[in-house]
Simulated scan of single mutants.
Amino acid sequence: MNDKIRKIIFQIESLKQELESVLNEQDLLYRVEGTRIEFEEKFKQTHQLLREGLFQWFKSSKPRNVLSAPIIYSMIVPMVVFDLAITLYQHTCFRLYQIPRVNRGDYLVFDRHHLAYLNLMQKINCVYCSYGNGLLSYAREVSARTEQYWCPIKHARKIVDPHERYLYFTAFGDAEAFQSGKLAFREALRKGDIPIVDIDDVSDRNE
């Protein structure tokens, strides 16, 4: 990994942290107390006034939305099976690999039901979406750690939205970097290090 690539990756990580900090500052409309999220009284009143009643919500629903509902909610079955499979996989294989397991609770977050401007159906929909998207993020991290353990090699073709570990993988076709760095990738994974590993440093140590 040359200095220019290393510098760009560092800038990307710094900007991501800065963006997250700024966004969090803008979202300080509430406070978290244990498992509850509390809004100021003025916000509570506004939220309740803006809540759309169930009858009006159903009345204004588009026919296409109603028709798609059974298809959307039928996906709960494969999602739950997938959830169980991913969890079983990492709790067996990751223990064998001696690498940290992904904390499922960091990815499956359910808090939108605290919002008073949502009616019952909207809250149910939000819980469902939180589960589906959280599950995919959770599975992606499990898969990313698996890829780092077994095949930390970039593709020859560009891929859309790669996981954050992918940036540090060895270049496609760089056999020397892969052979010299594959054990270092595993060791870094066990330690939870990010940046994952610097192949140039590994190569220097092996010479």
Results as ranks from 00 to 15, higher is better:
W150Q: 00
W150M: 02
W150L: 11
W150S: 01
C151W: 10
C151Y: 09
P152Q: 03
P152F: 03
P152L: 08
I153R: 05
I153N: 01
K154G: 03
K154M: 10
K154C: 06
H155E: 11
H155N: 15
H155W: 08
H155F: 12
A156P: 01
A156Q: 11
A156H: 06
R157A: 04
R157S: 07
R157T: 07
K158S: 10
I159R: 09
I159T: 08
I159V: 15
I159G: 06
I159K: 06
I159D: 02
I159Q: 12
I159N: 02
V160I: 05
V160P: 00
V160M: 02
D161K: 02
D161T: 02
D161C: 06
D161R: 07
D161H: 06
D161A: 01
P162G: 04
P162L: 02
P162V: 06
H163F: 07
E164A: 05
E164Q: 07
R165G: 06
R165C: 01
R165L: 05
Y166A: 08
Y166S: 04
L167M: 11
L167A: 11
L167C: 07
Y168M: 02
Y168D: 01
Y168P: 06
Y168L: 05
Y168T: 03
F169I: 02
F169K: 02
T170F: 03
T170M: 09
A171D: 14
A171H: 02
A171T: 08
A171L: 05
A171F: 03
F172R: 10
F172A: 14
F172T: 06
G173R: 10
G173A: 11
G173K: 13
D174N: 14
D174T: 09
D174I: 14
A175S: 14
A175G: 13
E176V: 13
E176L: 11
A177P: 06
A177L: 06
A177M: 12
A177K: 11
A177E: 13
F178T: 13
F178V: 09
F178S: 10
F178H: 15
F178N: 10
Q179K: 15
Q179L: 15
